[in-house]
Design a protein around this nucleic acid. Structure first.
Lengths: 138, 138
DNA sequence: GCGTGATTACTCGGATACAAGATGTCCGAGTTTGAGCGG
DNA sequence: CCGCTCAAACTCGGACATCTTGTATCCGAGTAATCACGC
């Protein structure tokens, strides 16, 4: 039970895109270099984010990826769900008992986390990050 | 990113032990049958719970597993940690940056879940379960 | 009747097999930009 | 100077290859209760 590296890459990529100028698409090459990942692998992850409607791809020379409208509303949870899927974290093996008390507790626990992650907008983080950058705090 | 089946088995086993008479140890056979798992596999999981000090094993004929003292304080989180380990769910790949903002958000999210799971005592659930049983609600 | 040993019913732990999912690579195809070249 | 073609720089998507981890099985060893046997 761990978050996959793909999620890590996705979050960092989104954060980076938020800090980039909106008119110029960023190439996979550059994004991959930033995080020390192979470009081809990153492109898989970006495809998922694109299908989820968070970013869009521009093909051809000077192409790359760019944020889509309403990007300011994108939360951590959105990104995580796009990569990890939306299935429940816990599945009671005794599926013939839908009222499993353990299942109920676990679902509620998962919910606590999701509520928090839904509040965390990636755009807010981008602001904070650039502020730190400006003030010289590393 | 999902909880393992082992965690599922562990939780159900602990719940079952809570509902069993304390003086008579329960055999792996019986516990495994209850959950449709192979006894040998279950025994691995039980070993982990034993090492975490939640239960103890009685060897020999009429042996089995039994709850240990202070079992009433055992929380969901204790059990999950015993099986899944206590490592953080999220690890930022860019480990040369300890102040990664994304990491901070994720750790906090994980914390929200853990705080909740720490409050959930397995013994409380056992009480509730037997009440439901008594009142005929399946 | 009583002690001693064998049998039985258990757990323990290591080694190993198997499956699935995460991670990563390769390649062929499509798309746009821009440069080169001929008229 | 204009238009056509072609190469270059990109992304897209499928098909693999690899690695890690969860899941599961097998087997030999240890342990305690119980039973059987012989004295």
């Amino acid at each position: 039970m761990k978050f996959s590296k793909a999620t890590d890459y996705a979050l960092h990529t989104m954060l980076f895109l938020c800090k980039s100028p909106f008119d110029k698409p960023v190439g996979v090459q550059q994004l991959a270099e930033q995080q020390q990942v192979s470009p081809t692998y990153l492109s898989k992850i970006l495809t998922k984010l694109a299908k989820a409607g968070m970013i869009e791809s521009i093909s051809g020379v000077n192409g790359g990826y760019r944020l889509k409208r309403n990007w300011e509303e994108i939360s951590f949870l959105d990104i995580i769900h796009a990569i990890e899927g939306t299935a429940s974290l816990f599945e009671c093996g005794l599926h013939h008992n839908p009222g499993c008390l353990i299942q109920q507790v676990m679902v509620e626990a998962e919910n606590k986390m999701e509520v928090f992650l839904r509040e965390q907008k990636i755009s807010e983080l981008a602001k904070k990050a650039t502020n730190m950058w400006d003030s010289g705090i590393k």
